[in-house]
Nucleic acid binder design. Structure first.
Lengths: 364, 364
DNA sequence: TTGAAAGCGCTAACAC
DNA sequence: GTGTTAGCGCTTTCAA
């Protein structure tokens, strides 16, 4: 298990996490009044250089750091400096990317990020909305789990919703989503038209989440347009589950055929099934997929994929929510950003023998 | 680009983000005094049921939510309820995992998570330390970027450092690291002893970070023990760079040989190079690697790998930092947790024909 | 140029 | 049971 080893060379009572110094302490230490010190700290005018220097000396000696709570409580408008972010799961590469991008914006704006992870639970989401309101966050960015507490919340705090739509909220908050349906339709159509496939299978997961549901809708649309019969295996939550579903469907299809998958997990499931059947990509199976975080290509042939433009989405979201903070009464907007579609090796557009990565051959 | 579409059906001034209600507002609304209301809100005794009910009615009608800043400022010990977390980069799966696990602990403890991302920059790290101190976080968990401001910080706030050691800090803060060196040695030794390889190559990235450096040290140790000559390509920051390096080294080695890689990126680089040379895994090239976040297996043959036990590390870290908050003067401890070593298909221990995933065959 | 007092929104200590 | 007062650490009046 885990092994402890005390590394301290000096034992005994060394510190006590002394209570942070306050303005009064600085006043006592420097001999100036509280207000003068406050002036120095806030770079206000009408302080002599000598005073300023002496006060700063005390500041350093006592290691003074202002208490943000007290300051923000009193300061005009009582702005907290907090921005809240709620994502469903940080292990999902897309949400991690999102959090990363959000942090950059937030810190660049001199704000501090409060992070909540909802685990796709409406209860946890509602809990965080409550906590965030207690903390008087100035704005919220959220990939919603579906709690209806969000409606009330958005009436009190500038809110922008990312990645997913939420029914009944379109007229209440700003949204930034990707054109999931159109991109899915484009990918599927590409398999059909550009590669002349008459059979295109879809491997899909849950359909409770709007963005994923839209991708499924896009697939159906493309198939309908082409007058083709949809072939779908869906509702898969785990990878092995999806793989089994894909395998079963693929057996019934004669090569060549296409596969559209709604996300990276579904993509790996599809590829795994294809491999198990001994098919060759893209000759026998042409694949196209959605990818949340763009980490797909490193581990296999460069996929033909639609990627969500995280940076763009976050930038737009910030713009929207900032504008809403300034103009609370403007009509809510829904911004749809376009996915980056990359035509890679798995559909046959890019030559597999070209610079692309990785076909691990295994065997004895 | 992006298309805006105003979706609001009702234009015009609908809301104004009204200033949140305060206790005074509740007092006015309900006719009770501020203190009585405070009592109700804090579930204190000596309040009649009737009063309680009436106050709660006002609370709901006004949508009252207590201001955490004011409350925490006044409340005993002025505890903030904040826990700070600093990670270098959320796009790295291991750190995302870590953040996920930390959030669970923090929220379970009823605390709120302040997130900082350092981008491996000591300046950004120092900035966050400052911000966190202003916000009076109760404890800090950090994967350090190397700022020496951390030393002073750890004297003021209970701090635990995760994943990496930092020179000069061992006697100041608690650490939770993995046995990187030993696991690297074990993996390398395994390739040498169990699979009878006389040549084992290492593909490695940067060596500024202690955990990664330790892995390299483990490799050298195993090679020395076996009386073998190290063969190393390192200092690679990008994947293509690492791949080129691996390719060059592999050309000069006669199969069969082993490859030890220090992380998932280096692993893919090695696999890519192996594929490019037309070798078969594990017959010609036996591979073993470190993996931060356990997402390696889904995309290829199950690798022989050492995985960092994120949940364990976070649990231990929480324990350490909590204990330190209670007993500030105890000697700092360094806890080393063991990596989970999985013997998979890439070294030959597990049969490639068994249930393992994915060999994407590409071709026309 | 500086300082004393009031008050941000809340809870703690003591009245009634 | 309920209300009044003080004060958390800070900024903002206003006076000196």
């Amino acid at each position: 298990m885990a092994s402890d080893e005390g590394t301290g060379s000096d034992g005994g009572a060394r510190r006590r996490f002394s209570r942070p110094a306050r303005l009064v302490d600085l006043a006592e230490h420097s001999g100036y009044s509280i207000k003068t010190i406050s002036r120095v700290l806030n770079n206000e005018p009408y302080v002599s250089e000598r005073t300023r220097a002496e006060v700063m000396k005390s500041v350093h000696e006592l290691g003074y750091v202002a208490d943000h709570r007290a300051r923000s409580l009193r300061t005009t408008g009582s702005r907290s400096g907090y921005v809240g972010l709620i994502v469903p799961d940080m292990r999902n590469g897309f949400f991690a990317d999102l959090a990363n991008a959000v942090e950059k914006r937030v810190s660049a704006a001199g704000q501090t990020l409060l992070l909540g992870i909802s685990d796709e639970s409406t209860a946890k989401e509602a809990k965080y909305l409550d906590v965030f309101r207690q903390n008087r966050i100035e704005m919220l960015m959220a990939v919603p789990a579906g709690s209806d507490a969000l409606t009330r919340f958005s009436e009190q705090v500038p809110t922008v919703v990312l990645d997913r739509m939420q029914p009944g909220l379109e007229d209440a908050v700003d949204f930034v989503t990707a054109n999931n349906r159109e991109s899915a339709r484009a990918l599927t159509s590409h398999l059909i038209r550009a590669h002349g496939l008459e059979r295109v299978l879809m491997v899909a997961g849950e359909k409770e989440i709007s963005s994923v549901r839209e991708r499924q809708a896009g697939y159906y649309e493309a198939m309908r347009e082409a007058g083709l019969q949809p072939a779908v295996t869906d509702q898969h939550l785990t990878l092995p589950d999806a793989e089994a579903g894909a395998l079963e469907m693929m057996r019934s299809l004669a090569a060549p055929f296409g596969v559209f998958s709604t996300g990276s997990r579904m993509y790996w499931a599809a590829m795994s099934a294809a491999a198990r059947l001994g098919t060759v990509v893209p000759r026998d199976v042409a694949a196209a997929t959605f990818d949340g975080s763009g980490s797909l290509g490193v581990a296999g042939p460069l996929p033909t994929q639609a990627q969500l433009p995280v940076a763009t989405m976050v930038a737009r979201a910030f713009q929207l929510v900032t504008e809403r903070a300034l103009e609370p009464d403007r009509a809510p907007r829904t911004v749809t950003v376009e996915c980056d579609i990359e035509y890679g090796m798995t559909c046959g557009c890019m030559d597999p023998s070209s610079a692309g990565p990785l076909v691990i051959r295994t065997g004895r």
